[in-house]
Design a protein around this nucleic acid. Structure first.
Length: 166
DNA sequence: ACGCGGATGGCCT
DNA sequence: GGCCATCCGCGTA
């Protein structure tokens, strides 16, 4: 998933940091608690979006990676912002750090629990507009999905706290 | 750059 | 009742 582009509506970013949650045997994985109403999307087919609410104020988005009923997923931890910079900046309250954290990137892309269960393995996915769309935003068909481009740089380097392609 | 505490609410035992 | 796959502001270096 590293290098894939996560897009939601007009905002998108390249995935540069992930975290794996292996399954029911992994105590840090939500699947360890068994199948509950909250973790239902986690046990869906691979490619399912599992979005959960944390610390009373933030959303985090995962991509299910295991077979149906298993409960294994990858948390999206950080993106390199690509499209919709102004929109993301507005959603981030004018701050410059847009997507360098799992909660921040969901804020910037407008991802909430309503996206639960949506396919993440093929774009675009059409959903109904919801309250995460800001006033004045020209968004007709909010969508969420992973895309793959042919012209991505093959290698990335960490220079300071930035990702660069050369 | 790093560490601390507060905000905040749902989930599971 | 206690735990969290977090973020932010403010403090100290």
């Amino acid at each position: 998933m590293l290098g894939a582009v996560l897009e939601c509506g007009r905002a998108s970013g390249r995935i540069v940091e992930t975290e794996a949650y292996l399954g029911p045997h992994d105590p840090a994985c939500h699947a360890a608690a068994g199948v509950t109403e909250r973790t239902l999307p986690l046990h869906g087919p691979p490619g399912t979006a599992y979005v959960y609410f944390i610390y009373g104020m933030y959303w985090c988005v995962n991509c299910v990676t295991g077979p149906v009923g298993y409960g294994s997923a990858v948390l999206i931890r950080a993106l390199e912002p690509l499209d919709g910079l102004a929109l993301m900046r507005r959603r981030r309250g004018g701050r410059a750090d847009l997507t360098n954290g799992p909660g921040k990137l969901c804020l910037a892309l407008g991802i909430t629990g309503k996206m639960n269960g949506l396919p993440l393995d093929r774009p675009p996915i059409i959903v109904r507009p919801d309250d995460t769309v800001d006033d004045g935003d020209v968004i007709v068909t909010p969508r969420i999905g992973l895309t793959k481009a042919a012209d991505w740089p093959q290698r990335y380097y960490v220079r300071g706290n930035r990702w660069v392609s050369k």
